[in-house]
Structure formats: C-alpha cells, structure tokens
C-alpha cells in the first residue's frame, strides 16, 4: 500500500535522474549558440538563441536578447536585428551600453538603407558617448549623408572622426572626396553623348562591349535605311526601317545613362570602403 502511494513520486524522481544526463538548460543552449557565434555560423547561432530566449527567465532575458540581436545582425537579418537592438536599448540601465545598442541599431537601419529614419533617430538621441562611440557616431552620421548623396555634409562628419593634428589623413580624405571618385561617370553626359553619337556614351562610361554593339546595330540600320531609300523611295524606307532605328537609338542612350549610373554607384561604393579604411586604420 505504502509503495503504491509512493509510486508517482518515485517515478518522478527517477525519470528526473534518467533525463538529467540529456537535459539541456537555457544556459547550456546559450553556450552552444556562443560557440556557433565564435566559429562564424551566425544563422545557426540565431536559431539557438531564439530557442533560449523563448524559455529564458526574467534575469536571463537581457543578455540573451542582446546576443540574439547580434546573431541576427551578423547573419544579415537586419530587420530582426533592428527590432531586438531597439528593445535592448530601451531596457538597458547602463548609459554607455545603451549607446552601444543604439549605435548597432543605427547600423542595422543603415544596412537596410533606411537613411531618413536612421538620421531622425541619430539626431534625436541624447545619451552618453565614450570617445570611441563618438567617433563611431560621426562615422555613421557621415555614412547616412553619403547614402543620401549629401557629400558636403558627409565629408564634414567624416572629418570629425580624424584628430585635428593629423593633417596627413585629412589630406587623404579630401583627396577621396574629389569629383572623379563620386560624380564620375556622369549619367547625363553619357545620355547626351549617346543621343548624338550611338555607343559613345557607353564607351565614355567604360563599357566598350555595349558601346561597339550599339554603334554597330544602329550603323547597320542606317545602312539598310539608305540602301532601301535608293532601291525604293524615302517614304518606303522610312515606314519600314525608321521604327526600328528609333527604337534601338533610344534604347542606346537610355542604356548608356543606366550604365553610367551603375558605374558611378560602383565608384562611390569603392570610395566609401576606402574612407572607412582610412578612418579606422591605425
């Protein structure tokens, strides 16, 4: 009788012992996720953090939330990273750590290309910055203006990250902000060049293949136009060939503009990478 009453109790105790070897607590899960994080498997880490976060107690939440946000950030899921960085920032008690979350949030906004929203947030934030964080803030603000194509302001903010006595670096920064690094090739110029001479705009933008292709195609159509005009009449030739000529001529100068835009964006990206390397080089 006594034993029967004890049965549920015994089962609980012994099953507990049996499972103890396999049990995995929140802390252990976090430890595994940390390992994934340090070995660069960020997506896997994010999964484990998510699970730990779901079951975490009140005390464990802040740490796990921050780590999870980091995992989302590093695995390229910037919208989720932004969400959890915002929460981490809101509930953080230590001022400089709060600023750190804030700067990470701004970074995830920038990486989503939400420049306006990032600008609004960064200008409204009144927190405490350490020296390193001040530098990062100026750099991020410069990045936002760079993304909005306000290069004068961007240059101003990038310049603030460099100490005033470091004239070498300042000179290099000025060098990087020259027009050839940011404004060339000019899409409008490519457009007008190709409008008057097919293919020239593409070649100006550095795309030789498409330049010659456009020139050959339009040249061929003009040739057929002239031959047809000799054999039949101007109007015959006009009706048969002109629609095609117009189409590929137009296509030529519109595409020249797009090619120049793409090349300019590539130039700007390269310049921006150089600016970052300049500012953060020792």
């Amino acid at each position: 009788m006594q034993l029967r009453k004890l049965k549920p109790f015994l089962i609980t105790v012994f099953s507990g012992l049996f499972f103890a070897g396999y049990a995995q607590t929140v802390n252990q899960t976090v430890a595994i996720a940390d390992q994934f994080m340090s070995s660069g498997q960020f997506a896997a880490a994010a999964k484990y953090y998510q699970r730990a976060y779901f079951f975490a107690s009140k005390e464990q939440v802040p740490t796990i939330r921050g780590k999870m946000a980091d995992a989302f950030f590093m695995s390229g899921q910037y919208a989720l990273a932004e969400k959890y960085y915002r929460e981490a920032e809101t509930f953080e008690k230590t001022d400089t750590v709060k600023t750190e979350w804030f700067l990470k949030k701004i970074s995830s906004l920038i990486l989503q290309k939400k420049f306006k929203f990032a600008l609004l947030s960064i200008l409204n934030y009144r927190g405490i910055f350490t020296e390193r964080q001040t530098k990062n803030r100026s750099f991020l603000l410069g990045t936002i203006y760079f993304g909005q194509e306000k290069f004068d302001k961007a240059r101003e903010w990038f310049a603030r990250t460099i100490p005033e006595n470091d004239s070498v670096k300042r000179k290099q920064l000025d060098e990087l902000f020259k027009r050839k690094n940011l404004m060339r090739p000019n899409p409008e110029l490519a457009y007008w060049m190709s409008l008057f001479f097919p293919g020239s705009g593409q070649i100006y933008a550095g795309d030789w293949k498409n330049g010659f292709n456009s020139f050959a195609l339009n040249g061929l159509l003009v040739y057929i136009f002239l031959v047809d005009m000799q054999n039949y009449s101007f109007w015959d030739s006009f009706i048969a060939i002109y629609p095609w000529l117009q189409r590929y001529w137009m296509g030529g100068y519109k595409r020249a503009q797009n090619i120049a835009r793409r090349k300019r964006a590539e130039n700007r990206a390269r310049t921006f990478r150089r600016i970052k390397q300049l500012i953060y080089s020792p």
């Binding site: 940390d34 994080m37 340090s38 802040p62 740490t63 921050g66 780590k67 980091d70 995992a71 950030f73 590093m74 008690k93 230590t94 001022d95 400089t96 750590v97 750190e100 979350w101 700067l103 990470k104 970074s107 920038i110 990486l111 290309k113 405490i128 350490t130 990062n136 750099f139 991020l140 990045t143 760079f146 993304g147 793409r262 964006a265 590539e266 700007r268 990206a269 921006f272 990478r273 970052k276 390397q277 953060y280």
Partner: peptide, 27 residues
C-alpha cells in the same frame, strides 16, 4: 550620475565592419 561601462555585454560585434559594405552592388 551616469553609469559608464566600456564594453557591451555579449559577443563583440564589429558593426562598423558590416557597414563598410552597405553601398556594394550585387548584380
């Protein structure tokens, strides 16, 4: 009074390094 702590808890993430590639094109 302000609470100041140099290092954020959790993994040290180089967010500036990620921002470096924000304008790269993926064609």
């Amino acid at each position: 009074t302000f609470k100041i702590q140099a290092q954020a808890p959790g993994n040290n993430v180089d967010y500036i390094g990620q921002v470096e590639h924000v304008f790269d094109l993926h064609l």
